[in-house]
């Protein structure tokens, strides 16, 4: 579904993405993890066409990202921070989005709108909403058009536990519908159960992209989240550690 071919991106002196290649297929739920500034958001923005890579190509469903914008019809995106026009009401935001997408098939998925109870507060202007409510709005928007690809940037960050659970359940449901789900997160813990693949990034480089089962097998840890979190906390030598752990030649030696 998404094919990334050797993309690189430099912001001034910062190498945000360094020769990254990857392939994501439908039915997969990819956890994109790595420390702050490792390039996760940049990669997502490349896929969405917001950031133009210096080198390399990205194809979504066979369409090159560079020239078109129609491919985004396949994507539902939930940003890390959702900010909306101050004086727009929630209801207006939804009707605007519906008008803008103008999907002929009409396959609207308003489950999240209902589950989050957004309909009751349709009249509220966006500026009066708390960060959590705005996250709910963002999530509901991402799922609204029943897209084949869901890109969720830190989806559960500002949500209360109950809502986070609702969202998680929805993601799992979508995964079952054979959709491609791309989730970024600093840590994995609360998304363990739905992840099929882990992509670990650091300093703009992709350190590894592996299936969860492979990973579990290789590390001997069932709770991958804990392991990764520990890796990231282990500051200085983490890079070496990861290299040792995952470079093919070393694979057998670990644990």
């Amino acid at each position: 579904m998404i094919r990334i071919e050797a993309i690189s991106k430099k912001f001034r002196k910062l190498q945000a993405l360094d020769n990254i290649s990857a392939q994501f297929e439908k039915g997969q739920a990819i956890s994109l993890i790595g420390p702050n500034g490792s390039g996760k958001t940049t990669l997502i923005k490349c896929i969405l066409g917001m950031v133009r890579p210096d080198k390399g190509n990205i194809y979504v469903g066979g369409h090159p990202v560079k020239q078109e914008h129609e491919y985004r019809r396949m994507i539902g995106y939930m940003p890390q921070i959702g900010r909306y026009p101050d004086n727009m009401r929630i209801g207006q935001l939804f009707s605007m989005m519906k008008q803008l997408r103008n999907d002929k098939q009409g396959g609207l998925d308003e489950t999240l709108v209902e589950q989050f109870g957004l309909k009751k507060i349709y009249d509220k202007p966006m500026r009066t909403l708390s960060g959590g409510t705005r996250q709910k709005v963002s999530a509901a928007l991402a799922f609204l058009f029943d897209p084949a690809i869901l890109i969720l940037d830190e989806p559960t960050a500002g949500l209360d536990p109950l809502s986070a659970e609702i969202l998680k359940a929805r993601i799992i449901e979508q995964k079952k519908k054979d959709k491609l789900i791309l989730i970024t997160s600093h840590i994995l813990s609360d998304l363990d159960e739905l992840t099929t693949h882990v992509m670990y990034m650091q300093d703009g480089k992709m350190v590894f992209l592996k299936g969860l089962d492979t990973l579990q097998e290789q590390t001997g840890e069932l709770k991958i989240g804990k392991a990764i979190a520990r890796i990231m906390k282990a500051d200085g030598d983490q890079e070496d550690w990861i290299k040792k752990m995952f470079t093919p030649s070393n694979e057998q030696k670990i644990y």
Partner: peptide
């Protein structure tokens, strides 16, 4: 500048820049 995130959201939609 206040609309920056909104513009971002619009950019994730099938709309030309």
């Amino acid at each position: 500048y206040n609309s920056y995130e909104f513009i971002e959201l619009m950019l994730s939609q099938p709309l030309g820049r």
